[in-house]
Amino acid sequence: MSAPLIELRGITRTYGEGEAMVRALDGVDLIIREGEFVAIMGPSGSGKSTAMNIIGCLDRPSDGHYLFNGVEVATLDQDQRALLRRNYLGFVFQGFNLLARTTALENVELPLIYKGQPRAERVARAGAALMRVGLEGREDHAPSQLSGGQQQRVAIARALVGEPMVMLADEPTGNLDTKRSVEIMELLRQLNRDEGLTIVMVTHEEDMAAYASRLVVFTDGRVVRDEPVTEGAA
């Protein structure tokens, strides 16, 4: 078994203080290893999104340890977390979150700009990433000229372009119809199986979770189920 890539130990996240304090996460222990495709499920308010934000270093835990690739990252400041996101993480969101009036290629280039890569290299890499998600020929299309499924592919290309250690997908099929959803999930599974990309995905659809290799279920800020997904469900 490979080394833990993401290791959450006793992660707690609280909002507010005193009487009004809410425990979004209440002592979560979770280990995700390289090459895994983890689906996180749970009812709304179960803490699955909070956990995703902490794993994605967008948020900091109130208590507990988060080791990323063996390094404590729970106490990093804002700028250090930005660097971590820049170099090791790729995000895919439910709402695609592409820059409007900006071409597919430029959207995919975005993370590389912050990595300080020269323009020629950025264009080459962004083009290659778009090809990986099957969008060759759409480089100059703005998001408004693309279908929902295509927009999400651009977002996936953007997450891939920086060669991250893990891709974090927050309800990636939430805004798509069944046919497009299946296509996106096939793409994610292919990236996971063929290229060994570690994927952590939040979803509320059983059908989509079935594409993953492991299912983690949250309820009331705790992990209540953690099991491998049985083959052949999809």
């Binding site: 979150n97 975005l110 912050y114």
Partner: peptide, 13 residues
């Protein structure tokens, strides 16, 4: 939102 996207892909404050 644009700022959020930029921060998510690793832009520093």
């Amino acid at each position: 939102r644009e700022i959020g996207i930029r921060l998510a892909v690793g832009a520093q404050a």
